[in-house]
Design a protein around this nucleic acid. Structure first.
Length: 574
RNA sequence: CGGUGAUUAGCGCAGCUUGGUAGCGCACUUGGUUUGGGUCCAAGGGGUCGCAAGUUCGAAUCUUGCAUCACCGACCA
């Protein structure tokens, strides 16, 4: 490709609304342009990278025995009504009507469509297992799109769905997919980790996420420093402390804490460490039955701990989805403002985190605005309560696997695999005849890869002060030809044209910068784009029939004879 | 959806307080200059100042409403 016939569209300045480095570099390198919030046009350079990611995903899926299909992006509402997700999913599901006033959705995922397909096409156990996938645009009307294509509303995803008669068979395909995903991210040249994950709204029992490690990652993932345990923080269990609760020694005392509402303020005012204070969060309670008015539940945590909303959401007393009480509800239930509430004397159920439950003589709100209690003890002062795991683990906690302590890192979720079970197949009555000739509901797995997100994640992990330093497998071009002042020198032009022809003939993806630009402009653009191998052709070395090779990532430079350029590059590209 | 902020040329921004019909840098066009790290000089093209209404002789500037965008939070395949 000659850059004079290409759309480089590089920017010298960083657009002001791009926050993270991958978004900034994708804009500056001319890879994407925003069309609306969370919706992007992929320019030629961006699309080249996207297609390479796609190709690797496709190859590995095919190798793993999955069959490629292409399902419609626009889906009829009836399927979603049948699975129950028409009601379950909120505004994230973009709904609209056609000219006949029939309801449709823009597909955020394809469990419904694939299940519908399979129940029509597959009728015998002999056709199972089957694993089908597609690489397609998804639309999720995110409340808050951000970070460019990292969290876009419209994005490219590879989604696969497998169907089985037995759990054993599902587990086998799950393992195959786990391996295929590891192969994909290894080939992409990314530093990634598979971690145990929560199954979330999609349902199912067992699930792993594949994370690319990056400081800008939206997810916290935890590792054991002594075993291979790794999990999303949402999923990681905080074990109950092994130490017994000390005996109560202090009397319950009310102290005035005017203007001290937060844990930090109370801690400073009373000179008590945050881990001896408990915080109380009021959330809406699960309805006992349709007639019961929705009331509240108090969640009690140590002052230095954070609520894990997934765990709270799953607690039987707590309404799902988890919602916090309003100021007015808090006042009505406790008689105090949010900054002064505590578990003593409440008339609503109290659920205490395991770590908070072993505290003695602790501090909490007095349920009286502007006052706290010191010397508070469970059982003595709070007769009825329940203990549960409610908090996020913190660094240094014992690993749930029993070996080692936890370390926390940040990750970008680029893949997610689920053992779904029969959730969709049962709701949509997708079954086959088994060996006994009886109708049996199938069990499902589903497996997603965020193809467009991978492009951003790869940049988060591979950049420097000059621009992108692509892993070899997904660079938009393999080699940049950078002639110095070609328009002034016939022999440079001839040498470069010759090299271009030679490299193209060898099947190498070359970007030939034939613009009438100064050297600095060309160097800056080729580095911004992150082309891995640069060949600089200048008068200086041409006297000895030599050109300069430069490696984008390592900065390594070599002087090459003109006739050894191709062989050297082929060696580098291996 | 709550909070905060923004919206003036393709990009980055100034002008707004104190109303008088728009400017700077980059990019773009032309000519020259320079040529191994985003040269320099000159001339030029490009803007219904997000939209609408209001106040006013006069609005980018003041008022009101709306829209869009971003960030923080909530939410989340």
């Amino acid at each position: 490709m000659r850059s004079s016939q290409y759309l480089l569209s590089t920017l010298k300045e960083t657009p002001s609304d791009a926050e993270i480095v991958s978004h900034q570099l994708m804009l500056r390198a001319g890879m994407i342009r925003r069309e609306a919030s969370g919706m992007y046009t992929w320019l030629p350079t961006g699309l080249r990278v996207l297609r390479k990611v796609e190709a690797i995903v496709r190859e590995e899926m095919n190798k793993a025995g999955a069959l490629e299909v292409l399902m419609p992006m626009v889906q009829p509402a009836e399927l979603w009504q049948e699975s129950g997700r028409w009601e379950q999913m909120d505004a994230e599901l973009l709904r609209f009507k056609d000219r006949h006033q029939r309801d449709f959705v823009l597909g955020p995922t394809h469990e419904e469509v694939i299940t519908d397909l399979v129940r029509k096409e597959i009728s015998s156990y002999k056709q199972l297992p089957i694993n089908m996938y597609q690489i397609q645009t998804k639309f999720r009307d995110e409340r808050r799109p951000r970070f460019g294509v990292m969290r876009a509303r419209e994005f490219l995803m590879k989604d696969a769905y497998s169907f089985h008669l037995s759990q054993e068979c599902l587990e086998k395909t799950y393992q195959t997919m786990y391996q295929a995903y590891s192969n994909i991210f290894t080939r992409l040249g990314l530093d990634f980790r598979p971690v145990l994950a929560d199954t979330g709204a999609i349902g199912g029992a067992v699930s792993h996420e594949f994370h690319v490690l990056a400081a800008s990652g939206e997810d916290a993932i935890v590792f054991s420093d002594e075993s291979d345990y790794a999990a999303n923080i949402e999923k990681a269990e905080a074990l109950a402390p092994t130490t017994a609760r000390p005996a109560a020694t202090a009397a319950k005392t009310e102290v005035a804490t005017p203007n001290a509402g937060t844990i930090a303020e109370v801690s400073a005012l009373l000179k008590v460490d945050a881990c001896q204070i408990v915080k109380t969060l009021l959330v809406h309670a699960a309805k006992a039955d349709e007639k019961a008015p929705q009331t509240l539940v108090a969640l009690v945590l140590r002052g230095d701990h954070e609520l894990n909303e997934i765990k709270a959401d799953k607690h039987p007393l707590v309404a799902s989805p988890l919602t916090f009480a309003t100021e007015a509800e808090i006042l009505a239930a406790t008689g105090a403002n949010a900054g002064s509430i505590g578990p003593v004397g409440l008339s609503i159920p109290v659920v205490v985190d395991r770590s908070a439950a072993v505290l003695a003589d602790f501090v909490c709100g007095a349920n009286k605005t502007g006052f706290h209690l010191t010397g508070v003890n469970f059982d003595r002062d709070i007769p009825t309560y329940e203990v549960a795991d409610l908090r996020n683990v913190v660094e240094g906690d014992p690993s749930p696997c029993g070996k080692g302590k936890l370390v926390i890192k940040r990750g970008i979720e680029v893949g997610h695999i689920f053992q779904l079970g029969d959730k969709y197949a049962a709701a949509m009555k997708a079954g086959v005849l088994n060996e006994e000739g009886k109708h049996q509901i199938m069990t499902m797995g589903c497996y997603g890869v965020g193809v467009s997100r991978i492009v951003a994640a790869a940049i988060e992990q591979n950049h420097d002060e000059y621009g992108i330093t692509w892993p070899a497998a997904i660079a938009p071009f393999q080699v940049a030809l950078v002639p110095m002042n070609m328009h002034k020198s016939v022999r440079i032009q001839e040498a470069t044209e010759q090299l271009y022809k030679e490299l193209m003939a060898a099947g190498i993806e070359v970007l030939f910068d034939d613009r009438k630009e100064r050297p600095g402009v060309m160097f800056a653009d080729m580095e911004l784009l992150g082309v891995p191998h640069h060949i600089v052709i200048g008068e200086r070395n041409l006297d000895e029939r030599k050109v300069e090779y430069k490696n984008r990532r390592t900065g390594e430079k070599l002087l090459l004879n003109l006739d050894e350029v191709l062989a050297t590059l082929q060696q580098q590209l291996k």
